[in-house]
């Protein structure tokens, strides 16, 4: 039981870190088309995420792999039930990754325009779909002894769509703040402008999300049982407020950090509310997938815990090192003089 809880926490952490890290890459991908007025500016934006996007996406692969290893039944049912949205997600992520690499390989307006469009689709679609998927996981999937009774249209219920919009706005805000740290001059000012402009919409949707969560899901059950848990969503709201305060004062790195906390705490709120479910059944709680009825054997969980304890700190250490190596803003001069830039 201890190991199942451990892996539930790790599962939540992996998703939270993934959204925190790929969130700004997705946000930058959405903004690239709108914020860049010429090719040089677009290249600057792509190059701010160039050295790190691939490593950030691996958190998704790890979250998937951890679900497989620790909760195989959940992995099997979640992935086969959500077949079509996951397929679209895969296509989008494939297109995004290739676009970063291929866009700069040839000159010519048509070629670059094509990849700009691909980056937009490859970033917007995953942001939206992750939100829709997690909204539906929070509210539960229509599953019982006979299997799954949903469809792609079912997933696009109001709460699912609202969570999708929340994710898109969170990531656009996050990406804008990242760009405000990693660019200079006019582009930086425009990024700050976007961050300020998006924020009220984000706040509104976040408030709506917290309110609708009370009606559409059972997440708050855990919070009323253990009121101390309310600290998590409260901290999320506080972090969201801090992003705006720091932005107003021009403390962009702090604003970005606050945005990181916001994303982690939003995921934390959902995960804390789910426990001990991984995916609740919206039809009958007896068919909910929980950490108890869908986990691996204790032996496997022990092995995986040992692996995680040894290697995750190593990964975090070299990732921090990499962010330090590439610290500081990317400028137009940088991308124009560096033959290796995207």
């Amino acid at each position: 039981m201890l190991f199942q809880i451990t892996w539930f926490v790790l599962w939540g952490v992996l998703w939270a870190v993934y959204f925190m890290l790929d969130g700004f890459v997705l946000g930058v991908g959405i903004l690239e088309n709108f914020l860049g007025r010429n090719d040089a500016e677009k290249r600057v934006m792509i190059n701010t995420i160039g050295p790190v996007w691939d490593g950030n996406e691996v958190w998704l692969v790890t979250a998937g792999g951890a679900t497989f290893a620790a909760f195989p039944t959940t992995y099997a049912l979640m992935f086969s039930y959500l077949y079509t949205p996951l397929l679209l997600l895969l296509f989008a992520l494939i297109i995004r990754g290739v676009s970063f690499e291929f866009r700069g390989k040839m000159q010519g307006g048509g070629w670059k325009k094509m990849w700009d469009a691909a980056i937009l689709v490859g970033s917007l679609v995953p942001a939206l779909l992750f939100g829709v998927a997690f909204g539906n996981i929070f509210s539960g999937l229509p599953m019982d002894a006979a299997g799954y009774h949903g469809s792609l249209l079912y997933l696009l219920n109001p709460y699912g769509v609202l969570t999708g919009v929340l994710f898109v706005l969170l990531f656009v805000e996050h990406g804008a703040l990242y760009l405000s740290v990693k660019t200079a001059g006019e582009l930086k000012l425009r990024a700050i402008g976007v961050a300020k402009g998006i924020w009220p919409a984000l706040l509104t949707v976040a408030a709506l999300f917290l309110a609708m969560t009370g009606f559409a899901t059972n997440l708050y059950g855990n919070f009323f049982a253990v009121p101390a848990l309310f600290a998590v969503p409260l901290a999320a709201v506080a972090a969201l407020a801090c992003t705006r305060l720091f932005t107003a004062r021009g403390r962009m790195l702090k604003a970005f950090a606050a945005s990181c906390f916001t994303i982690v705490l939003v995921v934390g709120t959902g995960v804390a509310g789910l426990f001990p479910n991984l995916i609740p059944s919206s039809l009958d709680p007896a068919y909910s997938l929980t950490i108890y009825n869908s986990s691996s054997s204790e032996y496997t969980l022990k092995i995986m815990t040992a692996v995680a304890l040894i290697f995750v700190p190593v990964v975090i250490a070299y990732k921090i090192w990499v962010y330090r190596v590439f610290r500081g803003p990317v400028t137009i001069e940088d991308v124009e003089t560096d033959e290796h830039a995207y």
């Binding site: 190059n47 160039g50 050295p51 790190v52 996007w53 691939d54 490593g55 996406e57 691996v58 692969v61 790890t62 998937g64 792999g65 951890a66 497989f68 290893a69 620790a70 195989p72 039944t73 992995y75 099997a76 691996s296 054997s297 496997t300 092995i303 995986m304 692996v307 995680a308 290697f311 995750v312 990964v315 070299y318 990732k319 990499v322 190596v325 590439f326 560096d338 290796h340 830039a341």
Partner: peptide, 28 residues
């Protein structure tokens, strides 16, 4: 999944992170 999931998760943690982080260092 109990036995097959483990090597996949270990691959991501031990190898894939290393590869994708240092390819970034190498390119940029």
């Amino acid at each position: 999944g109990d036995i097959f999931g483990a090597p996949l998760a270990i691959e991501a943690t031990v190898a894939f992170f290393l590869e994708s982080v240092f390819i970034g260092v190498w390119i940029f």
